[in-house]
Nucleic acid binder design. Structure first.
Lengths: 201, 201
DNA sequence: CGCCGTAACGGAGGCTGCCTCCGGCAGTAT
DNA sequence: ATACTGCCGGAGGCAGCCTCCGTTACGGCG
């Protein structure tokens, strides 16, 4: 969650403020899950029983709100990336990373798009986190390439973009099961037959 | 039932109306090309020197406008699909179709998304055209699969979605060259090395 | 050539959503 | 008590979508 409070909270957020903050987060999470990342902020404020001004004070931009919502996931992702860098074989590690990345981007409808656009604006609230993911992919890719387990051309921007594109693709048929993994394996193995791990009997 | 219309029911559009219609189309094309498919309709009307009401009379929805703008391309696509169905080898024909489809979806920013959402709403102005593309892909895919030149699992919805996803991906880095073909070949050949046409020296 | 029916026009206005700004209230300290 | 200040809420300005309806003027007809 958030950082631990100081031993003697100079100015602990007043309890009421704290409660509003939590309510807002909860309602935002619900709304984003239901309607995607562009859900109305006024609706969220209303659902949290709070004025729109309060929402904007706590979260000056939609991205700031998103950043807090995803904070934990981002931490997880970083941890997993660190572990994968030591994992073998490198090609598998890369594949796992793609899967993890895409699954994350598929958390909310519209998130893949937001993450991509974040990479274009370094002043964005999410920029740092996004950049970190991108960088992690860079290392995993390089290692897989050295091991001859990933195409030698292929750069990390392409990789990141494709992972998000697969998340985007799986948003395109709502109501059914999550297709992200399926799309990823199509991407990873290519569209032609028999070129993959597949063992024909 | 009011006025019994003459033998010729559609009178030609009055000349001024015709001109407004053309102006609107031209400005819409320009705006969509520049700012993507969600450009402000009021701006387009203004640029065409016409009231917003006029725009809405000619094109009751944004999609109707889009449909007219894309009408010619859709015809081209159909023609090309028909030709490809007789082309050999079937795998190449399928690959060409993917390329054509994705290039089309990359015409305007946001178009890929719009085409996908169109497939979900059969009352949409673009539904028929979209469905036709989808169906054409179906045939090409089946033929390639029979020839053993495309994965046997893989359905035409996936194919259509992936083509659009590649167009989406190539929208994500504006200002640079068009990456659609690059992404398509990554998709087609897979991310691992040496499984493709690639000939190592 | 002038009249009139009606196709075509245009923009005001209602709605939704974004975001800012500021007057007011309520804990806290003196 | 009183003053301080963090916190609140929503009014209001802006932009975009779309509808509705009073007005304009085209062009066929007498």
């Amino acid at each position: 969650m958030m950082t631990a409070e100081p031993r003697v909270p100079r100015r602990p957020m007043r309890s009421h403020a704290r409660r509003n903050y939590e309510h807002l987060l909860a309602q935002a999470r619900a709304a984003f899950a239901e309607q995607g990342i562009n859900a109305s902020l006024e609706d969220i404020a209303r659902a949290a029983g709070v004025g729109i001004g309060t929402l904007y004070r706590h979260f000056p931009t939609r991205q700031a709100l998103l950043e807090v919502l995803l904070h934990d996931s981002f931490n997880d992702l970083e941890t997993q990336a660190r572990n994968l860098i030591k994992a073998d074989p490198p090609g598998e590690a890369l594949a796992s990373w793609l899967r993890i990345l895409a699954a994350h981007a598929a958390t909310y409808r519209g998130l893949a798009e937001a993450l991509m656009s974040t990479l274009r604006d370094e002043r964005s609230a999410l920029y740092a986190s996004c950049q970190a993911l991108h960088a992690a992919g860079d290392q995993l890719l390089a290692r897989a390439q050295e091991a001859g387990e990933a195409r030698a051309d292929l750069d990390s921007w392409e990789l990141f973009t494709l992972a998000n594109a697969m998340a985007w693709a799986s948003e395109q048929r709502p109501g059914t099961a999550d297709h992200t993994d399926r799309f990823l394996s199509l991407l990873y193995e290519g569209l032609r037959p028999g070129m993959s791990h597949t063992i024909s009997p």
